[in-house]
């Protein structure tokens, strides 16, 4: 499955990427699976997702918890808790 991944704020700085498109293996079914898969890609992802419980996620621009299924997602974003306003 091909999906666009986006990274914001310090997650972006740590991965060194703003966005990328990846092909995911079939056994990556939830956000938690995806984080584990990303961490296996290299030290910058290990560092970015070290405290993975802090990181917030959105599928197709809607907030979701880490146990959310990613089936049919077009766009998945990772970011720290928001600090606007």
């Amino acid at each position: 499955m091909s999906v666009k991944l986006l990274y914001f704020a310090w997650v972006r700085e740590k991965t060194g990427l703003g966005e990328e498109t990846v092909d995911l293996p079939g056994d990556v079914k939830t956000i938690t699976d995806l984080i584990d898969w990303l961490k296996a890609r290299g030290p910058e992802f290990v560092s970015a997702f070290e405290q993975s419980d802090v990181i917030r996620t959105a599928i197709d621009q809607t907030h979701v918890p880490h146990d959310a299924a990613i089936a049919n997602a077009r766009e998945i974003a990772f970011f720290p808790p928001v600090t606007g306003g």
């Binding site: 914001f8 959105a58 907030h63 970011f79 808790p81 928001v82 600090t83 606007g84 306003g85």
Partner: peptide, 22 residues
């Protein structure tokens, strides 16, 4: 807005830049 809108603040000062904690 403060807890849901996807904005992130980075503060810059003489000591460098830091992302604001929620």
């Amino acid at each position: 807005l403060k807890t849901n809108a996807p904005f992130w603040k980075k503060e810059d000062g003489p000591e460098g830049g830091d992302w604001v904690d929620a």
